Amino acid sequence: MSAATQAFLEMLAAERGAAANTLAAYRRDLDGAEDALGDLAKVPRAAVARLAGEWATLAPSTVARKASALRQFFGFAVDEGWRGDDPSGALPNPRQRRPLPKVLGHDAVRALLERAELEAATGKSAAVRQLALLEMLYGSGLRATELVGLPLSAVPRDAPLITVTGKGGQARMVPVSERAREALTRWTALRPSDPPSKFLFPSRGGKHLSRVRLFQLLKELAARADLDPAGISPHVLRHAFATHLLEGGADLRVLQTLLGHADISTTQIYTHVDAARLVELVNSRHPLARRGRTD
């Protein structure tokens, strides 16, 4: 990696508070571009234009992500005086539609919870941990990284809230349901203390449970609950949290705060998912709808 791209990544971490996963993704994309073109601070515009052919077989979402990383780098390079031009205009700009999130129905969530509760009733620490993880994913809408990285000190005592550090190091307060608090209490009573770890869900090495292992645990639980494991993941449960809240009448701005979305447009994806509720809202609240009933 060139000194220029390394400096760009350091800027993202220091000034924008980019998360480790974000930095890793930028590093991969910039490394790939440098392998194809050479030093990005010096590469000519004509060479940048060749990336469209290099990326021709990639999915539009992947091309858009790579192009975004390069645009940001080139803007940084111009600001630093390393380049006299910004060749971003030569990058491909694929049109893509944001996919609708997978929706997990109430019955499927109920089946997962019932199975997890049945297994936790055995008192085994792994089963109790599994229930606590599930309750936090569905009950508070946490991202996988946010959940596994929770410190032990985050466990609520009196206030029914938990402080979560989300993308970009942004902290937010998230409510914890009574069910989740009860599951967390059961888990902390069984949580191993050797080796010492500051994390709520420690691993055997003293660090925290990995995201990969969390995915595996959920898919294994889904199979035991007679659900398709392919349709279950931490993010699907986060989507279920958001969709079911919206169905219950939650305000979109409140939902944005709970999910930790920086932009309301990200939260608005759930209005497409909950189409049935929107139709009902128009039919019941629109002035012409009320007039029709009166007539």
Rank of each mutant, 00 (worst) to 15 (best):
A159R: 12
L142F: 12
D194N: 07
R191W: 13
R213Y: 04
T243G: 02
A154C: 11
A180L: 11
R204P: 00
L218Q: 14
L245T: 03
K198D: 14
A262K: 13
W187C: 08
L209F: 05
E135Y: 09
P195A: 00
Y270G: 04
G206S: 04
L258N: 06
H235I: 07
W187R: 10
S265N: 07
V148L: 02
W187E: 00
P229Q: 12
Q256Y: 05
A180H: 13
V164Y: 10
A171V: 02
T185S: 14
T257G: 03
R211I: 12
S203P: 05
I162M: 12
L184D: 05
R172K: 14
P195R: 07
V148E: 03
H235S: 11
R253E: 09
L161G: 03
L227E: 14
S140V: 00
A223S: 15
A144N: 07
T243M: 08
A222T: 07
G248F: 00
G168I: 08
K198C: 04
L259E: 04
E146S: 00
E178Y: 02
T266Y: 10
L137A: 05
L227C: 05
I269K: 09
L246R: 11
I232M: 15
V155S: 08
L200P: 12
A225F: 04
L218K: 14
A159I: 02
S265Q: 09
P196L: 04
A230R: 15
D251N: 15
T267D: 10
L237F: 11
A154E: 14
V254I: 10
S193P: 02
G139K: 05
T188L: 13
R143M: 12
S233L: 11
D194T: 07
T257F: 00
L150I: 01
D228I: 02
A159Y: 04
L217Q: 13
Q216M: 10
S197T: 01
T165R: 07
W187I: 05
A262W: 09
L190R: 11
V254Y: 08
D194H: 10
F215Q: 15
R253S: 01
D158E: 13
G166E: 08
K219F: 05
